[in-house]
Design a binder for these strands. Structure first.
Lengths: 255, 255
DNA sequence: CACTATTTGTCCGTATGTATG
DNA sequence: TCATACATACGGACAAATAGT
């Protein structure tokens, strides 16, 4: 048994579930693929043989073979009769999008590396709970928008927001170019403080559709209320994130 | 076509992928199940009929039927000949605690208001990925524990942790009285810094059982790595929270 | 009381995919 | 490569329970 196989089986004893409805060959393929794309298996190194895979993961040789064949079909490995199967993918650790830290400023850094699409932009009367939050009458229209944020054309966040302080001259184009809070600052509203709550929620239909996932999938949920220098609330943001593509990372220091 | 079906299908023609190796019936089952557990489909409401599912999602009636049957086998729905299939799961977003803020100190405040139960406490060899994180050999045993945290006898958090620095004299009782990190401090390990990542994840069986919820329900997930004053990792915490009972709240200030 | 439409329950036959030895 | 067993998915047909006209 070679080092590569040891590496794999140690990380992944018991990952293959014969009781699962997803076929064994695809579970094995998927695991190997993740290891190649994640850099666990190095470029050029030899993959475990069909025999090795079948014994350590307790599947038939045909199942192991199918997994390797599927990898070869995507050019992630190269197979050579009599020699073996070799990794054909160079792993370069791309920085994954996990930008946020504790300070409000840095919330906007992400904005420059990813793309925003504004699905809807209207001035409408808010629902009662939102009006209550802002401490205004629910007769007074607020700027309501729905946006999605993508990284390399893969959408990962769905935003719904209510904002006090935008005037009706605002356009979708400018929102897709500059961060929303920066535009708000330019129109004279200074944000001093924000409160946010992180939670989890099942994907609801419009967000699921926009993010290209199934309704019901677990999403990371963020609600952020931003307050101006006078202490009054100026913004309510409701965001859901696809956890496969975005996670909220932060550093904590003691004292 | 009823409201429920509109809800499900309007944004989601094409979420079921016939090309996927996971069976269609299971894709459909999984989507419906997530919607029930996440509260998208309300308790007592009528599910779409086999016929409706089969036409809107473009699968055979047998496939739709299998999905509903599998839900019924878990008692998530009740089926009645001639009437239909009805949701049999009550989603209650109950009272929520929301204690944590940005600083490491305050993580422990919660500890005094809630109760910890230690399900498991062992010194065992860590899996390779954990050993890698700590930068130690996977032959060296670490203190591994599984705990649940409750508020008024309602469990809301499930913790699994690996710790370097505890000695074998540690007992479950002391862990249930004092916060884990405080005990660690007393045994001479000072934590200087922590990195944590928030995400979302479907409830997996042991956590779901301990938290008294159905597997698959969306949970808030936290991974925290704590580092000592010498910069070396001393703790790895993997936590999942029931979002109905716990949310992660923080304040952000500008400058 | 029929009559009808809807919905689940049960059955058939067939084709294809999965997994084993 | 082959033979075999089982699962998946389709279309269709009919029976039985329910609800409304």
């Amino acid at each position: 048994m070679d080092a590569t196989l040891t590496l794999l089986s140690k990380y992944h004893h018991g990952v293959l579930d014969p009781g699962s409805p997803t076929p064994l060959y695809h579970q094995l393929y998927s695991m190997l693929r993740d290891c190649i794309l994640g850099g666990v298996l190095e470029d050029g190194s030899r993959m475990p043989s069909e025999k090795e895979l079948s014994t350590t993961f307790k599947v038939s040789r045909i199942t192991a073979r199918r997994a390797l064949d599927d990898l070869a079909a995507e050019n992630l490995v190269a197979r050579q009769r009599g020699r073996g199967t070799f990794v054909n993918y160079h792993y370069h650790p791309e920085l994954l999008n996990a930008p946020l830290t504790g300070a409000l400023e840095s919330l906007e850094h992400m904005g420059r590396e990813t793309k925003i699409k504004v699905l809807s932009l209207r001035f409408i009367r808010p629902p009662a709970n939102i009006a209550d939050e802002f401490g205004i009458s629910d007769e007074q229209p607020l700027c309501h928008m729905v946006r999605i944020r993508s990284n390399r054309d893969l959408p990962f966040a769905y935003y719904e927001s209510w904002t006090l302080g935008f005037d009706r001259s605002i356009r979708k184009q400018s929102l897709e170019k500059s961060p929303r809070l920066e535009l708000l600052r330019k129109s004279g509203v200074k944000i001093a403080r924000a409160e946010q709550t992180l939670s989890a929620e099942a994907a609801f239909p419009p967000a699921a559709g926009a993010l290209g996932i199934m309704p019901g999938k677990p999403l990371l949920k963020l609600i952020r209320r931003s307050f101006g220098e006078d202490g009054k609330q100026v913004d309510h943001l409701n965001a859901v994130y696809n956890p496969d593509r975005f996670q909220y990372r932060m550093s904590l220091t003691l004292k």
